[in-house]
Write a protein that binds this DNA or RNA. Structure first.
Lengths: 216, 216
DNA sequence: CTTTCTTGTGACCATTTTTTCAATTTCACA
DNA sequence: TGTGAAATTGAAAAAATGGTCACAAGAAAG
């Protein structure tokens, strides 16, 4: 047992995956699950799964497996999915619009509760139940709604300035869809999601690696 | 010099990042660049950059740095960005629609050249210059247009079946936006992009790691 | 009570990052 | 042109991180 350590990043990135499949199992009425079965569903080696789980303590029972409900509850708490997390979105363009309609909340306790944009034709509107505010309201709304995560979907050349506004407004984590690499104070977490990069990487693997797995 | 080896995955994932910034430098007229300068722009340690580059040979000059144009040309070739790559998109919903309008082609030689969906109200239409075909045309179009990469943006419960159709049609790589973990033959490359996972991971880091970087 | 199943983990292996520094080049200036 | 200081790469070595094997230990099932 390896409790009280910090969980490896690689492990953390797999937790939502486990969590999602556990919910499916629970909803289908299953009571127990083995690392082998989980492995086939989420495509992660069973030893890796057991190792991942072991960072959190002895969650399973030898010769039996893991109790689905117990594990599900545990991960819900671990992933903060037992309470609502409000998220802001900045930049209601093509991608921003799609994300507003993405319904994270359908299966998780995450919801976009405020959107921001500069365009006059969209500010003041309500998109899929989410109000779109002008950038000037950012600080106020983020404070009132106690939001500390933002999704950044503005054009590349507006990425840095909007990131700075978000940080000034008190945001602690940014999911950055712009190709710009943001410069922010080191206590702000930035998660880059760069679709072009992902495609280019896939193309490279396809042309050079042939017959292998690329992972995430 | 470490030529003729396969390039580490971690390195490949950073190549598009370098490539993008080199293009910016080139467009601004810069002739040379050092790993240190590059490091600040792309937020990757300069030693890591030098190591990454060294897998491809001795691209730089000691005491000088790297020649921007030479490096840019080299990466364009390496990333296959010197010729057009056609990509298919399956599932013209919210996200699919946004991706159709994403204009990968603006700054790279990647373009979505065919979309597929089941909905009658959209099949036959042209979205942002891209024709939307019925699923039944998939095999034909993918063959004719010699497409070997597809973006999968269908609902979660349609992910597996559409992946199978894509594979049957001859696709070699799939960028999977559904939360489903696809089961495909091992010579098919799958790149998973799970937005909910990314958000949940960010939330976890925010609550547990405080003041650290999460990287990609 | 024996067989089967399955976890948790030590030991090992692989990959990735970082440190360090010799080798090389540039540059300023005499 | 010659010389020393500053800049910068490339790579060896070390450190950190992540993944897998293999098996003892415990639990379940017959």
């Amino acid at each position: 047992m390896l409790k009280n350590q910090t969980i490896p990043k690689a492990t953390v990135k797999r937790l939502p995956l486990y969590y999602r499949y556990l919910r499916i199992l629970f909803d289908s009425g299953k009571q127990k699950v083995s690392s082998k079965e989980l492995s086939e569903a989420v495509k992660v080696d069973s030893a890796t799964i057991r190792r991942d789980f072991s960072y959190f303590g002895e969650l399973g029972k030898r010769g039996y497996g893991y109790d689905v409900e117990k594990l599900l509850d545990f991960f819900a708490k671990t992933l903060n999915d037992d309470r609502l997390t409000n998220v802001a979105l900045v930049g209601v363009g093509n991608l921003g619009n799609a994300l507003l309609k993405y319904h994270f909340h359908q299966s998780n306790s995450i919801r976009i509760s405020a959107a921001f944009d500069v365009r006059e034709d969209i500010v003041g509107k309500i998109v899929d139940g989410i109000p779109v505010y002008p950038i000037s309201d950012m600080e106020e709304q983020i404070r009132i709604q106690q939001i500390d995560i933002a999704i950044l979907t503005v054009p590349a050349d507006k990425g840095q300035e909007n990131a700075e506004k978000l940080v000034a407004a008190g945001i602690k984590g940014i999911m950055n869809f712009t190709p710009a690499r943001l410069t922010v104070s080191s206590d702000i977490l930035v998660q880059n999601v760069d679709l072009t990069n992902e495609l280019q990487t896939l193309i490279y693997f396809l042309n050079h690696y042939k017959k292998e797995q690329t992972g995430e």
